[in-house]
Design a protein around this nucleic acid. Sequence first.
DNA 1: TGACAAAGCACGAACGTTCGTGCTTATTCA
DNA 2: TGAATAAGCACGAACGTTCGTGCTTTGTCA
Lengths: 201, 201
Amino acid sequence: MTKGTDTRTTILDEAANLASINGLNGLTIGTLAAHTGMSKSGLFRHFGSKEDLQVATLRAGVDRFTETVIRPALKAPRGQARVRALFDRWLEWGTGHGLAGGCIFIPASFELDDQPGTARDYLVTTQQDWLDLLATTARKAVEAGDFRPDLDTAQFAYEFNTILLGFNQAYRLMRDPKAAERALLQYERLIKDAIHADQLA
Amino acid sequence: MTKGTDTRTTILDEAANLASINGLNGLTIGTLAAHTGMSKSGLFRHFGSKEDLQVATLRAGVDRFTETVIRPALKAPRGQARVRALFDRWLEWGTGHGLAGGCIFIPASFELDDQPGTARDYLVTTQQDWLDLLATTARKAVEAGDFRPDLDTAQFAYEFNTILLGFNQAYRLMRDPKAAERALLQYERLIKDAIHADQLA
DNA sequence: TGACAAAGCACGAACGTTCGTGCTTATTCA
DNA sequence: TGAATAAGCACGAACGTTCGTGCTTTGTCA
């Protein structure tokens, strides 16, 4: 690891933290330089444009996410256990074991949705990867016999993700002490339905 | 209605639209002035500070929301019908029948959650009002016999809101053509559970 | 005429970005 | 091996623009 990529890593580490607090648009070159003890120009040289910095920051966030959530969860055995591991790990990710301001992708989702560009494009693929991973994990749980065979795994992934969004709002904006409990209840209902659909109309 | 409050209304109307697109922090006095054909200073005089403008914009959003979602939904008869009316109306609200960039409160939720101030405070009370309204509506549905007596109405409100968050992300960021369908499926499962809890473990 | 509304103008600060200049490492070659 | 050369890295200064925010002046109606 040469010196350049070394400081670049340091910068992006801090950038991800700042962006998790102030958002991707609130991430500014000046404050980032101040937080890293660099000059604006010296820092800027590593990226070339603000948008490149945003994409690089998202990419750094993906690395952190993979390390904090996905990799550990994949150690759990296939099936329902792994689904649960993803859920539990995500809750940790969203509550400070990841970035200072929590998940960086959720605010970005609503910040960039009307803002065309490479940052938005990258975020979309990232989010799609996450949904695909969830769907795949659910499918394996079906194959393992944990979930019912006719489960709509894409819908399952969609709803799983939705639970995280709700938790994030309740936890960070509303500071609801019951946020985790609420999310867990919702999760358990989702799982119950994935095991056997309710017969009643 | 005097001239001053008249233009103020015009300004806030446009402010809500711009904020729904660019976020509350992305809402800038300069661009707002350009969009309303006013001078920055002439516009600024109406508020006195950026934060005041943000709060006033949120307040204008609440008015629009009440008019678009709540008021029409309250015309539906108490019980499950009214719950459904709130859901349907919200989907319209989130897909353009309200503000240009969709719901203004959702992006604000994730933008302001780490940003102390009067704007954040106001948003929290607004969101709490919404959750309370949902819970109350659910409780009336219980009283009407539409929902089961032991329903946790606060949890119901929480999950109802969560569905909206998920829909917003799927619709606006992912541009998922199935977003509405997915949200509806999730909604129907929530209702089914509200009617009679699944017996199975 | 007097009160209020809007414009005009200017401010200091911060924004993203460019430029030219040194300092530190690698690389090359005698 | 040691000097010469090149590449990489970070810096300070400044660019033009936009930010939020004040003052002062003009316009517009009761």
